[in-house]
């Protein structure tokens, strides 16, 4: 600028300047000169900026599709309640919590809807079911976020996943695949070192389905190639039927098998008969 100005001030005559197209500065008014200089600068900036944007990788890289609306809401919840342990990008934190990449929305929905996550005491042998902190909708939003982050198994739509299930077939599958831990009664049972298979009494259709898909805690994964989606519906139909089924033989003693029966025969049977002996015979 200053150079232009000084050159203009001490430049050659007007005619000579006209003879060469770009030989010398065309004499313009002060205002014009300033205007052109501004435009040139602007152009230069645009060119440089354009080249830069063309070659430099942008911070908003579009190699993954944009998060859906639900996933964005889920991410917000995730950043607030889960990121402390699972890491800001669900990559997991060493010695604290595992990576969530690839676990799928089924797992997230199971853990959050049953209240297991967020875990209050991650050091205990097994995270237990408790009052959920989030609504079903929020759990699904978090599930959507984790799903869009890394993929994984997903639940089918709807809340009634027992429809079209064959109870008898499901019972057969349940006894072979599930009863060894959850017991014939669906009441659950002990595993080693304080771990346990929980009771299925409070579980909804979606929770059972999600548990089979994702294998939470100590449970093995029963993927769709091991137990087909139809067989999963059969099993859910059996479990939910058994819950609603009455005990035809009277008080079912919690369906815990011979252990409570042993208690009853002594505490009810023997004790009541001993009172009778005290009543009808001499005491001392």
């Amino acid at each position: 600028m200053t150079f232009d100005d000084s050159a203009g001030a001490a430049g050659p005559p007007r005619a000579a300047r006209r003879g060469r197209l770009f030989a010398g500065p065309v004499r313009r008014s002060r205002l014009q000169r300033r205007l052109f200089a501004g435009v040139r600068l602007l152009l230069a900036l645009v060119v440089v900026g354009g080249i830069y944007t063309a070659f430099a990788p942008g911070s908003q890289a579009e190699d993954t599709p944009k998060l859906s609306e639900a996933a964005q809401l889920g991410k917000r919840l995730y950043d607030q309640s889960c990121a402390t342990c699972h890491g800001p990008n669900a990559q997991g934190v060493k010695d604290r919590a595992p990576s969530l990449i690839g676990v799928g929305s089924a797992d997230v929905e199971f853990q959050v809807e049953t209240g297991r996550m967020p875990a209050a005491r991650p050091q205990q042998a097994q995270v237990e079911r408790k009052q959920p902190l989030f609504t079903v909708e929020q759990a699904q939003q978090m599930g959507a976020y984790i799903q869009e982050l890394g993929g994984g198994p997903q639940l089918p739509a709807g809340t009634n996943l027992r429809e079209g299930g064959d109870i008898a077939k499901g019972g057969q599958l349940f006894r072979v695949n599930c009863a060894s831990c959850h017991a014939f009664s669906t009441n659950g049972g002990a595993l080693s070192s304080g771990k346990y298979a929980p009771s299925l009494k409070p579980a909804t259709d979606r929770e059972i389905y999600a548990a089979m898909l994702s294998g939470p805690q100590n449970m093995p994964v029963f993927g769709d190639n091991q137990i087909t989606p139809q067989e999963k519906r059969d099993i859910i139909a059996y479990i939910q039927y058994q819950k609603g089924d009455q005990d035809p033989g009277g008080f079912g003693l919690g369906r815990y098998g011979p252990v409570p029966e042993a208690l009853v025969i002594f505490l009810v049977g023997m004790v009541s008969i001993m009172f009778v002996t005290l009543w009808i015979a001499g005491k001392s």
Partner: peptide, 20 residues
Amino acid sequence: FQINPIWLFGPYEAAVVSAA
């Protein structure tokens, strides 16, 4: 008091061993 609800246990198969 219900005792030994055999219908819950299902028929015996070698692969079926329930908890409890």
